[in-house]
Write a protein that binds this DNA or RNA. Structure first.
Lengths: 193, 193
DNA sequence: TTTGGGTGTCAACAGGTGTTGGCCTACAGT
DNA sequence: ACTGTAGGCCAACACCTGTTGACACCCAAA
């Protein structure tokens, strides 16, 4: 019947763990850290709140597990200096459209210092190397990465969090067509002033 | 029936009202809607929590009073098509540097639907007219205003809320030099694709 | 069958929340 | 002097929060 796998006995609780994590991601994404109560998450996952504590320790642990994801930027080496803007915008857009983890991260980062720190870490660690490789003077990399972050996160903010209707209605190709030159310029143009 | 007295009878409570409002603005700006408790605001204002209720009804009323501000965009008629980008970015930046109300509004808008609605209203009502006046086809005004919002709010997000160090360290002139061409393009360039 | 641990529920605790009503005090109008 | 009223504090309400410990269930191993 149950073809036993010698090494890893499939714990029956894996399904529950996943249900909790899915519910948590959705709640954090739509409600933010404070309003996403453990009780609500547990109810969404159809289990008792105490199970959340058993599997993830406490609310912070649950959040950490729920947003444990890296945004898998393409290898900086595979980007050409000519179309890095388009490539970055396309990648970010598909990333945000696909899963709600990033929305959760943004929403929490705004009200929770730990979330803000995580956000700083992700964008600093992932975007700065790209900037360092693309821009004229490596010393300017952090500033240029910050400008790119501002443009990309601003789009995410208006489109996925604040939901400005015109921002929501933009087709992905339109977003790319508008933002790609901006990102391109922030990374590769000579430093102004 | 209050007769209009020559010297306006300065209610003694005006000072308290103002103290409450100031404390509320600061708390909302730094903590967001949920974490900014009435008790904490009252303590900051050195009065009893019940006074907040008496003067502002409830927490929502307090928030509404605390963020009752318009961002006084320059008259669209006074803007020229050539430097609207620079003018908008400069104005936006000085507005955010000066007072914390906008930070409070942004922070709350992310977790509170009423705050988000207010944000949509402000930027829709103020930025769309400018876009309508500047862009080639008035029908594109909302989309172009949304793009400008994304860029400007993204800057505010990274600089004043998430506090990315490189974004914080940018000098105001640098911000203007980088963002003005972007805003300019979003408003006046021909529609791509 | 008995054991025993993984899985799950239930009830409760201690603390914090927005909000309310009662009571006290200062002071201007009569 | 008395009185009305506005400004202010205190204690309490009802609810919700994260978190905990005790108890029941299932099901495989001994």
């Amino acid at each position: 019947m149950m073809h036993s796998k010698p090494s890893t006995p499939p714990r029956r609780s894996e399904a529950t763990r996943k249900a909790i994590l899915d519910a948590a991601r959705e709640r954090f994404a739509t409600d933010g850290y404070d309003r996403a109560t453990i009780r609500a998450i547990a109810k969404d996952a159809s289990i008792d709140p105490s199970m959340v504590m058993r599997y993830y320790g406490n609310k912070e642990g649950l959040f950490a597990a729920a947003v444990a994801i890296d945004l898998r930027l393409p290898d900086p080496g595979s980007l050409t200096r000519e179309d890095v803007g388009r490539a970055l915008v396309t990648h970010f857009l598909s990333m945000w459209e696909r899963n709600e983890v990033l929305t959760a991260l943004l929403r929490v980062g705004v009200t929770n210092e730990a979330g803000a720190e995580r956000m700083r870490g992700i964008f600093g660690d992932q975007l700065v190397p790209v900037a360092r490789r693309m821009c004229p003077d490596p010393e300017q990399a952090p500033a240029r990465a910050a400008l790119v972050s501002a443009q990309l996160l601003g789009l995410a903010l208006t489109r996925y969090v604040l939901r400005f209707p015109p921002a929501v209605d933009l087709a992905p190709e339109e977003v790319v067509a508008w933002l790609a030159p901006t990102v391109q310029r922030y990374l590769t143009a000579p430093y102004p002033a």
